[in-house]
């Protein structure tokens, strides 16, 4: 259960939430721009349907409004950690394929990667505020226990990249909504509820 909610903790959470909302909003705008550039430069079809790519966290969620604050934060954190790894891999592949030929896309990818890392850290801060244990990255990898992904063809890499950026754009919107939920004052106390209770 989260520590009883002192006013200072509530204020701190609200501050972290509103900063997180701005960060996620900016990240989303940059991801959407990156997505447009990526589609164009990789010669992809913007309206192409991309099946769910293994290892890419799906933003889609059912009964979103019933999630507790802790669920929201833990799911967000797991997602952005996964995106951090996926974007790093994309960046690596990008350099291998194009070298410096396409530095612009590489820079944009690196900028988004930086924002994703910053946002993941921000989520950890929120969890720490609730003296909530932060799942270690190793724990997650063990939980996944997934073998390293098979080597993809160039086209498969491009499609996966499209899937990654699309999901990340959706996650950024979801994160804004999640953080708004967390920042909402609870009807009773007027302060933001402890994470475990907040719908």
């Amino acid at each position: 259960m989260a520590a009883a909610d002192s006013p200072s903790a509530a204020l701190r959470r609200r501050d972290l939430c509103s900063r997180g909302i701005r960060l996620a909003g900016k990240m989303r705008a940059d991801v959407v721009d990156l997505l447009d550039a990526y589609v164009e430069q990789q010669g992809l079809d913007a309206s192409a349907s991309v099946a769910a790519v293994e290892g890419v966290p799906q933003a889609a969620v059912e009964r979103w409004d019933e999630q507790t604050g802790t669920q929201r934060l833990l799911e967000n954190l797991a997602a952005y950690r996964a995106f951090r790894a996926l974007l790093a891999q994309m960046l690596e592949e990008q350099r291998e394929q194009l070298g410096e030929a396409d530095a612009g896309l590489g820079r944009a990818l690196a900028a988004v990667l930086l924002q994703v890392s910053a946002f993941a850290y921000h989520l950890e801060e929120l969890l720490r505020l609730e003296s909530r244990g932060i799942p270690g990255e190793e724990e997650e990898e063990e939980e996944d226990g997934l073998p390293p992904p098979p080597r993809l063809s160039l086209f498969e890499q491009k499609l996966r990249g499209l899937g990654v950026l699309r999901e990340l754009a959706q996650w950024a919107v979801r994160s804004v909504r999640d953080l708004r939920q967390l920042a909402k004052p609870s009807p009773a106390t007027g302060t933001a509820p402890g994470l475990a209770e907040s719908p």
């Binding site: 933003a59 889609a60 969620v61 979103w64 999901e167 959706q170 996650w171 979801r174 909504r177």
Partner: peptide
Amino acid sequence: YLQLFSTVK
């Protein structure tokens, strides 16, 4: 909506 934030069309 059964799901939110979906990339599926």
